[in-house]
Amino acid sequence: MALTRDDVEKVSLLARLQLTDDELNSMTEHLSQIIQYVHQLDEINTDDVAPLAHTLDITNVLADDVVADCLSREAALQNAPQRDEECFRVPAVL
């Protein structure tokens, strides 16, 4: 199943990326190549292979419910493109 330009347009909208026509075309080509590459896996017979939820063979990494230090507000906000005294500022959310 080939990736279409419409697919890329839809995904870019979901990610709130505004792509030019040229970018959409090249993205479609590049993403198609990536997907084709992954499709090589289809050639392997996986009938007897159990689904894998995680590549690491470990489970139950859990931490105790004990409070640790937070960042200061100043540190938390320091990389924000737009901010005020207390908050991140973003274009209006409706």
């Binding site: 409070v67 640790a68 937070c70 960042l71 908050c87």
Partner: peptide
């Protein structure tokens, strides 16, 4: 006491952006 994936507190009503990491 703490969040699901980090150890920041979950206290309600604190000043904005003072409980993050």
């Amino acid at each position: 006491n703490t969040k699901l994936f980090c150890r920041c507190p979950t206290t309600f009503g604190q000043p904005p952006n003072t409980q993050t990491c």
